[in-house]
Design a binder for these strands. Structure first.
Lengths: 194, 194
DNA sequence: GGAAAGCTTCAGTCTTTCTTGAAACTACAG
DNA sequence: CTGTAGTTTCAAGAAAGACTGAAGCTTTCC
């Protein structure tokens, strides 16, 4: 039985990210630990986390290690206290940015390099030729998305938020850009699926 | 022992998406089935998939059901053949779009509604007050990202690709937009992380 | 109607991943 | 040094999830 306990609102939030964790390939424990740290007023140490979530101390230790590997928590030390305290970045945009970066490094980059190396092989059959064609399409899409994401990410948080904030304006600005650069936008063409 | 077999390039691609599947919360089987369908020249039926991947017929059936629920495969019928044939959209951008939409519906929307309902509660303590503050930040970020994503998604594939293709130009267009709408952009400010 | 083809469901088995307590490690204080 | 507070590692048990074969549907064809 815990001596410290979480208020209902906080508990609900933590539980939700536990569930979500599973759907995301992250484990439930890690999801809950991060949710807890995220909504906490102050940095927490491992014992506090273990007690509030009723996990074993070692489980918390592993979860925190994982979160550190993802660069999602920052380590703090309180004067006169040898324990390690953990907190999440104050800026939610920063969290999003780091998450995206890590995910990219771990999942997108390996996929891209697999695709690149497959594209260098000489196809030995029609099946391989067609497979390469599809892989090239996938590679180009991912590559394009990533290049563009780089650009957005390079903007400072405020500017990026501003870009988001533009909302529907994007479309208008786009056509304006066409006029500026002189490339006439092609419209109306609906490609028929083969 | 299979009577039909996959060429090396195709096998490698399929294997990669099997691995990736795990990291994504999708199961390995489903990842491989989709990879196979994606690089295939022609639509495949369940028996062919089961044989090529050496899965049980029932496993394939479940995987395909899952992929249909995600709207990632299309069902085809060949004249004079009662079996169901499956294929992926020809356009990779379309696949990306559907994937994003479904993920949003299944993961983002429930999170947003959890956050909204939590924000309606009256906080009973400082801990809850602060938790709500953080939840509001998270809610606003997600909401903003989604609204903006809507806009991009609403563009036809070609236009969206064009937007991506703009690359670094985005930044310039942005400041242009500021001039148009009359809001002066703040520049040069690099916020120091707290 | 009923046989056959094709698809789905499901209970049980197998595999993988989580979680834990105990032991080992580390760094510091006295 | 030695003791202690704090953290990490690890082997084993527990839980979750994936996979299968067999049985059961459904549809088509004769």
């Amino acid at each position: 039985m815990p001596t410290a306990t979480l208020p209902p609102l906080n508990r609900q939030f933590v539980a939700h990210f536990g569930e979500m964790g599973s759907k995301w390939g992250i484990n439930r424990t890690v999801g809950q630990i991060y949710a807890l740290i995220f909504i906490s007023e102050r940095a927490l140490n491992a014992d506090e986390i273990a007690e509030l979530l009723e996990f074993s101390r070692s489980n918390v230790s592993m979860g925190l290690k994982e979160l550190q590997a993802w660069r999602l928590v920052q380590l703090r030390h309180q004067p006169g206290d040898r324990r390690e305290y953990f907190e999440a970045p104050a800026d939610v945009w920063e969290i999003f940015r780091v998450l995206a970066e890590e995910r990219r490094r771990r999942e997108i980059e390996p996929t891209l390099s697999m695709l690149r190396s497959a594209l260098l092989e000489s196809p030995a059959s029609d099946a391989e030729r067609h497979a390469q064609e599809r892989m090239r399409e996938m590679h180009d899409l991912i590559d394009r998305l990533m290049k563009w994401f780089d650009d957005v990410q390079r903007l400072a948080p405020e500017t990026a938020m501003q870009l988001m904030g533009m909302g529907a304006t994007v479309t208008k600005v786009l056509s304006l850009k066409d006029r500026i650069t002189g490339s006439a936008p092609k419209k109306k063409k609906k490609p028929a699926a083969g």
